[in-house]
Amino acid sequence: MEWLSRSLAKWRYKHLLFSQAELVVLDLELTGLDPKQHEIVSAGWLPIKNMRIEVKDAQHYLNKEVQSLEQSPVYHGIDSAQLASGYSLKTLLLALQQAIHGNVLVGHNVQMDWAFLKTAFQQFNLNVKPALMLDTMQIDKRRVLKQGYPLAQDALTLNACRMRYGLPLHQLHDALGDALATAELLLAQSQAICLGGKCKIADLT
């Protein structure tokens, strides 16, 4: 019956007004693209409530158990001192579970991030399922294609999407910075698609 309640939740969320929904915008920093082989370096997320990005509730967790990072500590601009202040992957995942389970998860190319998280959650036997996932990259892909333009290479990077809405150029710093950039993008997208507040989540999927 779990799938039923989940799909019910999903339906409910889809018909929720964007302005009433609570969303969690997430970005992961990864050592590579393959969930089986590569690892999560860090995770940053922040909530959007009532169409406001709550910076004070932003979270940023560094995974101090990253293997590949030990070989090359300056990778991702993270030095060993910072790494020492990090958390175990489990702590990271538990915190993340709190944030996203049963909520709406947002990311730029969220499927990729979710693939890593799924593997990691399974590893620790955690049952985490967001009610719904929104992908800002897909949103823009659909919008561009709908207008009949061919998709150029690099047309869907975070900055390329942001430029389309006149958002300032974003310096790629870390997972949390990217999560903020994604959240800002989502606000702009919702505004462009259906004037923000009157937007239903379904309009964005």
């Binding site: 169409m51 406001r52 990005i53 709550e54 910076v55 004070k56 903020l180 959240a183 800002e184 606000l187 702009a188 505004q191 004037l195 923000g196 507040g197």
Partner: peptide, 17 residues
């Protein structure tokens, strides 16, 4: 300041808020 803000997107349709 940067830890205590909310980020919002202002547009014609929500300017009255």
């Amino acid at each position: 300041f940067s830890k205590h803000i909310q980020v919002v997107y202002l547009s014609k349709s929500n300017q009255q808020d």
